[in-house]
Amino acid sequence: MVKPSSSSSSTSQDALALFNSLRSAYSATPTALKIIDLYVGFAVSTAIIQVVYMALVGSFPFNSFLSGVLSCIGTAVLAVCLRIQVNKENKEFKDLAPERAFADFVLCNLVLHLVIMNFLG
């Protein structure tokens, strides 16, 4: 009778401990990366809300739905790329200045949104 409750409490304690260690590890992340993470979260959740709307109401007009969702997803992907490039831990892009990465990000976003606008109808 005791065993399962103790095991469940130990599981929740484990999860809590895991979560706490994850949070402390993440708090060490530079602020710039945190901003990018926040931005990615913002884009993805916007995309999710649009998908929910589509599921409720139907896919008409399909063009607009696709452009809306792809705009969010595309931005999120580009933001992730930016995050990879500006991360100092990432040795592969050590020689790449974060400003250069940001310029790529801006350029790609502009091109992406030109296509999105064209597709919007």
Partner: peptide, 12 residues
């Protein structure tokens, strides 16, 4: 839903 879309922005 338009209002709901503002929530992530506010959260951001």
């Amino acid at each position: 839903f338009l209002g709901l879309l503002l929530l992530p922005l506010i959260g951001f």
